[in-house]
Nucleic acid binder design. Structure first.
Lengths: 339, 339
DNA sequence: AAATGTAACGAAAACGGTTTCGTGTTGATA
DNA sequence: TATCAACACGAAACCGTTTTCGTTACATTT
């Protein structure tokens, strides 16, 4: 085992001072050619690498980004992470990922763990419990300490910081309009509770599309699931009781599950009932029939979030200004709707 | 903006020394009741939190784990991360996630970034390019520096370290046997190149099952895709030309895609052809018909990896001993095989 | 010869903690 | 009354860097 070599080691071996070594390795003009070459050669030979922790302590900058998301095992969030990683790594930043598991407490704990010097800034999406409790003190504390925060997808207006979202209302509107344009009149909606910022927006978009096109809104065609997990029975009952010829779902799982239910009943998709979901993941691509979806562009969202955060981290600006970027969703037409 | 408060700040305000503050906050016996109470109250009031970086520098321990995986947007790997996170967080460790994106260079770069003090140890799964090049010097360098490494799933025997895998050969064997037991005689295999450790093992298990049950191996029923991405045309041709009544696939995407192809041709699943895949993800659960799979227990694998790593990190043992844990795969029977 | 300039390097502080080893004060003991 | 613990606290080293500010020694200028 060969232990890591430090500046002090080099200084001792070469009988110079630590400062000389430090400067020589930075190619400082202060140091003579000879000395620099000698030191650089020695450092290379022994594979010297500066200790990141020491540098962090000195610079008060860690080059780490803290990412706190509700769920790692979720296609949308992983694509966002990929985007964050891509941008951040290219700029020499590492990404520390913490999952809140949809729990308020875990969100708070994770933030506290990271906020004491481990990271330069946060990128996060709120847990459902946080949005339900409507308590954002942990976020406010962090921003008050001057740690930059970027909120994406599941955001709140209670906290002043940069935000990145897609236009969820528009996305739902586009989806509903697509179905209306194809002659569907009885369009249903499967969503989750309104306290989730995205669900509310999507529901609004759905309603808006129907109203604008002269369709009345039948509340029996709207199913609100209380949580993110599948309650299969509720969905089954919904499909039994509601009279629909098209369904918009706020995620791909609800949609794919619904399609299977309908197929078991002998209905044809999209002829007898069409489906549109949110999130353009594997499930949508490989479902049978493949699922038409509103793509949320997770990777793009991640890249933009990282960009906004790093800009804030590296900016020296005294006066803070915050912006909210709204990405356009895209309708990806597949076989669960008529082309 | 209220900046972070340090020991020095407290010491100055309370007119005591830094060491006294430090000890008081640790409830040291050395400090009198009065002083401790005064200091603790002050620290609480101003919400003092020790700076992680300073502690890391002093202790030479970061409480960070570096995780390097080939792909974040992949169900199996995300479940592993979830397992790592769960175990690590409970022990006060953070998880730094880096994706190699199946690239050797990115794997090396990421490891180098983290190896200079940022982490206490690595948990990783090799990129396909690394397994193809068969070059593990970056791993050896790290272990030689005394940084513990745990390899999972995609491993190599070239590096001495702890390892966690599932018995891939047994998994494939179980799957093939399941099909044989149901009377299938013409069992195909869709896999990826042999340089991927897991693919090789699975192919071996498939062959073993066939041979042991008196079925001859027809090489035309084995499709080897060169990479992890879907080459749809190759798969279509394969299904056109090979005469099969069952197919084993090394991942769920190949299987689900294959099922859809067969359904389009009017074949019934599982009656006319049965399918088994690897990885128990959303795709398998929500496919139509749902897919029988060999579950790899990613979360468990993550937890065990984290446990093994943290044990090594925290152990003072002089002499290193390494172990390889082999998890048992599970056959999850669904509707793509006859029950 | 004295004053000045410059090249090349080192000492030391700083980042924010932990920890070891004093040291001054008190009260009890011989 | 001199001695000695025990108590309560502070000084300083240390972790590995960076960076400012000397300080030499020598060459150049007047």
């Amino acid at each position: 085992m060969k232990p890591k070599i430090t500046l002090k080691d080099i200084a001792r071996e070469l009988e110079v001072s630590i400062s000389t070594v430090s400067k020589a390795l930075k190619n400082s003009e202060e140091i003579s050619r000879d000395t620099k070459e000698k030191i650089q050669a020695f450092a290379k030979l022994y594979n010297y690498r500066p200790n990141n922790i020491a540098i962090s302590l000195k610079n008060k900058r860690t080059k780490n980004i803290g990412v706190v998301i509700p769920d790692i095992v979720h296609h949308f969030f992983t694509t966002v992470i990929r985007g964050i990683e891509k941008y951040a790594n290219a700029r020499g930043y590492n990404v520390i990922v913490c999952s809140s598991d949809e729990s308020f407490d875990r969100e708070v704990i994770n933030m506290e763990m990271l906020a004491n010097g481990s990271i330069d800034g946060f990128i996060m999406s709120l847990s459902s419990e946080t949005q339900l409790k409507n308590d954002y003190n942990h976020l406010k504390e962090v921003t008050e300490q001057g740690i930059p925060v970027v909120l994406f997808d599941r955001i709140t207006h209670e906290v002043e910081c940069d935000k990145v979202i897609i236009d969820d209302q528009l996305g739902a509107y586009m989806a509903a309009k697509k179905m209306i344009d194809q002659g569907r009149k009885k369009i249903g909606l499967i969503t989750t509770a309104d306290y989730l910022s995205v669900s509310k927006e999507r529901t609004d978009g759905y309603r808006k599309a129907l109203v604008e096109h002269g369709l009345e809104i039948d509340e029996s065609r709207i199913l609100k699931l209380s949580s993110m997990d599948m309650d299969e029975e509720l969905i089954e009952n919904f499909f039994e009781s509601a009279d629909m010829d098209a369904v918009l779902c706020v995620n791909e799982i609800f949609a794919v599950f619904g399609m299977r239910l309908m197929q078991k009943k002998g209905l044809r998709i999209p002829e007898d009932m069409s489906f549109i979901g949110f999130t353009d993941g594997f499930l949508s691509q490989y479902a049978n029939p493949s699922l038409t979806v509103i793509a949320q562009h997770g990777q793009k969202m991640g890249e933009i979030s990282a960009q906004m955060l790093i800009e804030k981290v590296e900016s020296e600006a005294e006066v803070e200004t915050y912006q909210t970027k709204i990405l356009e969703p895209t309708l990806v037409v597949r076989d669960s709707t008529i082309n």
